[in-house]
Simulated assay, not measured.
Amino acid sequence: MDYTTKIIFLFFTLFLIIGCKNIESENHRILIIYDVTGSTQSNLPNADKVLKDIAKIYDLSDKNEMDNYIHDGFEIGFTFLDELSDARTIRKTLKPAKGTTAEVNPKKRKRLIKDYSESIHEMIGKALTGTPADRPMSKIYAKLCKALNKEAGQNADTRHVIIYTDLLENSELAKFYNPKTLQQAAQAPVEFSKKHLESFCQFGDLSAITIHLYPYRTAGTDAFINQAEKFWVTLLENHGATVKVNP
C-alpha cells in the first residue's frame, strides 16, 4: 500500500468513525409560571424579558452557546398564576435530533432551534395580549404545589421552573397581606405550611427541579416581599428544590 493509498484509507476510516457516531442528546424542560394577580400591566415582564431569562439557562440565540444544545430536545411551557390556580399550560416542543452525526445537518438544526426560539416568543406574546392583570386573589400555593409536583415527575435530563410573582399568598388558605400572618409564615415556613396549606396539597420530592424566582417588587411592598421570599425559599428547599432568587 503506497503512501497516498494509506492517507485515503486513513481518511475514510476516520470519516466512518466520526460520521457514523450516534448522536448523543438530552431533553430539557422549562415551565414558566406567570403571576397576574396583584399586579398591573406596566410592571409585568414582557415576552422579551421572559426570553432573556430563559437565555440565562439555555442561550438558544447565541451561535456559540447554541452548539452545546444543537442536538438536544426542549419542551417549554407557559401558564398563568391566577385566582383560579388552574390556568391551562401551553407548550411547544423541539424534538431531539436522531441518527448519526453524518445524517444531521448542523446548519439546518440551528435554523430549527432559531425558529423554535422565535415560536416561544410568539407563544408568550400572544398569551400576554389582553390578559387582565390585578386579579383579586393569589392562589400561589395551590398553583405551585400542583405544577411543581407534576414537573418533578416528568422524564427529562434537566427541569427548570421560572416563576414571576409577588410571592404574596392571598387565598382562603392564608393571607400574606396580613402582617401577622406573613410574619408567622416567614419565621417558621415548614410548620406554617403543615398547619395552614398542606390540607389542600403537599409538595413531593422536588430535588430534580431548579426554581428561578423573579419577585415583583415596589418600594411600598419590598419589606413584605422579603418576608414572603424567606417563606417560599425555605419551604421549597425543604422539599429538595434548588432555588435561585433573581433581582
Rank of each mutant, 00 (worst) to 15 (best):
F176A: 06
C201D: 12
K230M: 04
L148Q: 06
V161I: 10
D72T: 09
I18C: 04
N155G: 01
F231V: 03
F176Y: 03
Y58H: 15
L51C: 08
F224L: 08
K49Q: 05
S85M: 02
P106E: 11
N43V: 10
L51Y: 03
A185V: 07
S199E: 12
K56E: 15
K98I: 06
P179H: 04
L31I: 10
M1V: 00
D157A: 07
N27K: 14
S61F: 02
H212P: 03
G125R: 02
H212I: 01
M137F: 13
E172P: 05
A219I: 07
N46K: 15
D115Y: 08
Y164M: 00
T100W: 07
Q202H: 13
L197D: 04
I8H: 08
R135H: 06
Y164S: 00
P45Q: 04
F192R: 03
A97D: 01
A55W: 06
I54A: 13
L213H: 01
L197A: 00
R88C: 02
K150F: 10
S117M: 01
K194W: 00
A87G: 07
Y141V: 09
G73D: 02
A87C: 05
L197W: 10
L167W: 09
Y214P: 02
V190C: 00
F15L: 09
F15I: 04
D59V: 11
N105T: 00
T101M: 13
G77P: 02
A185F: 00
E169L: 04
D53W: 02
K230H: 11
K150W: 12
V243W: 11
A228I: 07
G38Q: 08
A208R: 08
F231Y: 15
E151D: 08
E65Q: 14
V36E: 01
Y116N: 09
S171L: 13
I18H: 03
K126Q: 14
I113K: 12
G125I: 02
K146A: 14
A133N: 09
S42K: 09
T101P: 00
E198M: 11
A152Y: 02
L84S: 14
L168I: 12
G204D: 14
D157H: 13
I8W: 05
I120C: 01
L84H: 05
Y141G: 14
I163F: 01
T79Q: 12
K52F: 09
T181Q: 13
D2C: 02
D59W: 07
N27W: 01
T13Q: 04
C145A: 15
E103K: 15
C201W: 12
L10F: 13
S199C: 04
I140Q: 07
L81A: 08
F224V: 02
T4M: 09
